[in-house]
Nucleic acid binder design. Structure first.
Length: 290
DNA sequence: CGGGACTAATCC
DNA sequence: GGATTAGTCCCG
């Protein structure tokens, strides 16, 4: 059910893709998915491939045309542009160096460089079981193994590749020393049952989640640091973790959530302002006609 | 329901 | 491989 983006492109179909902006390799054994819309900005989105059709952008909304296209396979499952096709702002990494292509295109629509992003899907327990099983055999997957796992799970090979990438990194993170704070730390206020993995995806046992409560003293320090710079690199994260008695991961999560919250609130505010303007116009119109 | 944690997907 | 985003989960 939750694997809508699984089946979309057979390796035989990928040969059709030659002559396009980012054609995948012609080698059938290693068929990398097409380069996602990572550096495609608005100007190139005037006609973006969309499943078995083509999406075009007009006056801020995306329209679906009916020409066949196989470039952005996940979109085939999201035929309804209103509900599923979204334009997301381009990433703004702390030390991101914009590519030439991005700089070229970003001026077309002001500074609003936006890209399409695949709607996030969540894998079923059954799918994760198979993925974990394969991961236990080998940390890397490719070739026929990946093809088979794709068939078994109903996930695309791209999704499987990404899952393995993320899984390897998750495993590495688990190996990192945990730097638990000492009990006599001035900021220390730690419950006993924290840092249990929330969901043991290996055996799919749902381990109860324990919430970490960040103390006011810690919050003050975090806010203070966030005001200076919304991004914090690993080195400083470790120092701060030690200084205020949190884990590095807790600080990382806090900064991530904080940025997310800020952005969300900001967007909500913008929307509010826009509707405010509309309301103003409406009231003015009704006033003028009276 | 706010917010800390997890994770699929993206970008380098 | 690592950092990050954004959608989601779920505890208090």
């Amino acid at each position: 059910m939750s694997s809508p983006d699984g089946r979309y492109m057979s390796s035989s179909q990928s040969s059709i893709l030659s002559g396009k902006p980012t054609p995948p390799s012609a080698v059938p054994t290693a068929t990398p998915p097409p380069t996602p819309l990572n550096s495609i900005a608005y100007s190139t989105l005037q006609q973006v491939p969309f499943g078995n059709g083509t999406a075009s952008r007009q006056n801020g909304s995306v329209h679906i045309l009916q020409q066949p296209n196989l470039y952005y396979p996940w979109l085939i499952n999201y035929q309804n542009p209103q509900s599923n096709l979204q334009l997301y702002p381009q990433y703004n990494y702390p030390f991101h160096q914009p590519q030439a292509s991005q700089q070229l295109t970003s001026s077309h629509f002001g500074n609003q460089t936006e890209v399409l992003r695949k709607p996030r899907s969540s894998f079923t327990d059954a799918q994760v079981v198979l993925l974990e099983e394969q991961f236990r055999q080998s940390k890397f997957i490719g070739g026929s193994d990946r093809e088979k796992l794709s068939k078994d799970t109903g996930l695309s090979e791209q999704q499987i590749k990404v899952w393995f990438q993320n899984k390897r990194i998750r495993m590495e993170k688990l190996k990192e020393p945990k730097l638990y704070s000492q009990n006599n730390h001035p900021f220390h206020q730690r419950q006993t049952c924290q840092h249990q993995p929330i969901r043991q995806s290996v055996n799919l046992e749902k381990v109860p989640r324990y919430r970490v409560s960040i103390t006011n003293a810690q919050l003050t320090k975090l806010e203070e640091r966030f005001k200076k710079n919304q991004y914090i690199l690993k080195r400083e994260r470790l120092d701060l973790a030690k200084a205020i008695g949190l884990l590095e991961s807790e600080i990382r999560n806090w900064f991530q959530n904080k940025r997310q919250k800020l952005k969300k609130r900001g967007i909500q505010k913008e929307d509010q302002e826009e509707t405010d303007v509309e309301i103003d116009i409406c009231t003015f119109d009704s006033f003028a006609t009276n």
